[in-house]
Nucleic acid binder design. Structure first.
Lengths: 189, 189
DNA sequence: AATACAAACGCAAAATATTTGCTTTATGAG
DNA sequence: CTCATAAAGCAAATATTTTGCGTTTGTATT
């Protein structure tokens, strides 16, 4: 039951994929996670269940697939003029998004995927975003721009951690602290 | 389908719970995650499937329940004489445990649980451990002992993040960096 | 210690979901 | 245009999950 990354790009395959994804999104808007079933999705998408089982394996992988899409950043991060500002702006939007009910569900669905690659991919989004912000800061000539690794460990990791385990603490105020620290830390090696 | 936290402590209930947990552990040693089924577990545990469904809801919650147990720290953290040393000792053991194949699975199973409380509980283990190490350090009279929050954000969060998303980086060497930084950071507020 | 009460279990039938073998369709390459 | 093949449809066969109901067994009360 291998998970296909690159389906046939055009034609029926793509149409089916789109129809199924769309059906999932529509049903998710109305039903809770454990009311959702494969046969339901299949019917709404105008597809037989076996098609879904063959392509995605099971419901968990299907909803994870849909959720990863949902988490892909759609727009470029705003440019506030400083790295700290950019981080704060992006982070606040991200926190808001992930604290919402559908955001929470998306997060959960992705985490529930047995496919490690999927989780990693979703996470690369943040990393590539950090890279973008870093390069922007360097281009501006900012000093003491932290390494990518440090940004991830100092900002993304605590944010993710709190979102997953301790939602109460996933706040804009804490975000500010993480950013200040990440930018302030002396090099230690 | 509410998940019962406190089952009847003694007697049959407890016996069933233990038998089922045991059955899961035995089967997990032999079968991959998606070969495991509720009826199988039920049979090995000498219980009817409906008992399991009623008590745990589904397989995902059951294996998550078992895995949370597995992640409960069994022994007191070693005392190396310094906070940094204690953190390193604990962290290395934890990393080793979670990088192993069964450790990885346990981590995945917990993350796949729809029950937030379960994930949080598993996470409290680390927090309470950090509290222990902090108090120990304070009792020794160490200076500049970081707040619990800072230890979690600075050490536990990056560790967890890397374990979940970027296993390659979940190393003892990086752990050392996280610890050094967490202990070195000036207060910023 | 006897009784009452409710929680948890067992059993088995019914309802659903999943898998599978085979056929048909549609796409992309030659 | 034709061919080879990946993906989809269909339907029968399995497997699972759910559910109603009767029974067992802890727990609390007297």
């Amino acid at each position: 039951m291998p998970i296909k990354e690159a389906v046939r790009p055009g034609g029926r395959s793509a149409r089916v994929q789109e129809a199924v994804h769309q059906a999932v999104r529509e049903l998710q808007a109305v039903k809770s996670r454990d009311e959702l079933t494969v046969p339901q999705v299949a019917e709404l998408a105008g597809v037989t269940p076996s098609t879904i089982y063959r392509r995605w394996g099971n419901l968990a992988e299907l909803v994870a697939d849909v959720s990863v899409e949902r988490m892909r950043p759609d727009e470029d991060p705003v440019d506030t003029g400083t790295l700290a500002g950019d981080l704060q702006a992006w982070g606040e939007q991200y926190l808001e998004e992930m604290a919402s009910v559908p955001g929470q569900r998306a997060l959960n669905d992705v985490m529930a995927s047995a496919d490690n690659g999927r989780r990693e991919r979703c996470c690369r989004y943040s990393e590539s975003l950090m890279t973008t912000l870093r390069e922007r800061a360097l281009a501006r000539g900012e000093e003491a721009v932290p390494s990518l690794e440090r940004l991830v460990d100092g900002v993304v990791a605590p944010m993710t951690y709190r979102l997953l385990y301790d939602r109460e603490s996933a706040t804009a105020a804490n975000l500010r602290r993480w950013i200040v620290r990440a930018l302030a830390v002396e090099d230690v090696d």
